[in-house]
């Protein structure tokens, strides 16, 4: 009994320490990211600023997008052109400066998806626990080849989702040990209740059986007689 007890405490301490360790350096402060986009199809696309994403809280998934300006008519034309050629639409976020230049995370989607959804989209920004931006992606809708009026193509309707690195699973020894203990306790309870004698436990089976036997024995000779007479009747 002592060993499981010890294990149990060890497990509890592990959990407590694990929890404190996982909370101590999590990022909660707000952060502002610049979002750039491009309708270029070639190898070296030129990006222009589209707006800013403000991450208010990583843990509670609060972030908003505010556009710099609405989509200009030239951009709208570019978008329509790239829809015709089954082109792509790119976005990127600068995340840090190095000697070799700015490091970006970027993604793309089919231009038609942006066009047909009328500039509504969900941006998913993946962030690790210390607040570093890992990647970005766009979720939109299917391309069905529908026509969208230009009036629907001026303002961005963007929702921002923050996906934060979760703590990986760990073997759940604690609950298992608890479960085993519970089972053991129940077993112990069960055995305590059941320390009556064999007869007192099963009298309800034994008594009818004995009575039955008794009755059977008492009616047996009659039956034999009846059998004999029945046989006689047949002849």
């Amino acid at each position: 009994m002592a060993a499981p007890m010890k294990l149990f405490f060890v497990a509890i301490f592990t959990i407590i320490f694990g929890l404190t360790a996982s909370f101590d350096d999590e990022f909660e402060g707000s952060r502002t990211l610049t979002l750039e986009h491009s309708f270029d199809q070639g190898q070296d696309p030129v990006f222009t600023k589209r707006g800013t994403v403000v991450i208010r809280s990583v843990q509670s998934n609060k972030a908003t997008f505010s556009q710099l300006t609405s989509l200009s008519s030239e951009d709208r034309k570019l978008l329509k052109e790239s829809v015709k050629t089954d082109g792509i639409y790119r976005i990127r976020i600068p995340i840090r400066e190095t000697e070799e230049g700015t490091v970006y995370v970027s993604t793309f989607t089919k231009a038609c998806a942006i066009y047909e959804s009328g500039l509504s989209e969900i941006l998913v920004i993946s962030v690790d626990q210390s607040g570093e931006v890992l990647g970005i992606s766009i979720a939109t809708r299917y391309c069905q080849g529908i026509h969208v009026p230009s009036s629907n193509l001026s303002d961005w309707n963007t929702k921002v989702d923050i996906s934060v690195t979760v703590t990986g699973p760990a073997p759940d020894t604690q609950s298992y040990i608890e479960k085993i203990k519970r089972d053991e306790q129940e077993k112990a309870k069960g055995s305590q209740a059941d320390n009556r004698s064999f007869f007192s436990k099963y009298w309800m089976y034994i008594v009818p059986f004995v009575i039955m036997m008794f009755i059977m024995q008492s009616i047996d000779p009659q039956q034999q007689q009846g059998g004999g007479s029945g046989g006689g009747g047949g002849r």
């Binding site: 360790a21 996982s22 995370v105 970027s106 993604t107 793309f108 989607t109 998913v124 993946s126 690790d128 626990q129 890992l134 990647g135 970005i136 992606s137 766009i138 996906s163 690195t165 979760v166 703590t167 990986g168 699973p169 760990a170």
Partner: peptide, 23 residues
């Protein structure tokens, strides 16, 4: 530390990411 990322390699979307400390 160990980090695991599940990435869609068409769009670069990170489907899931988790980390293990002291591993």
């Amino acid at each position: 530390v160990i980090n695991i990322y599940l990435i869609d390699v068409i769009t670069g979307h990170i489907i899931f990411h988790d980390n293990h400390r002291k591993a």
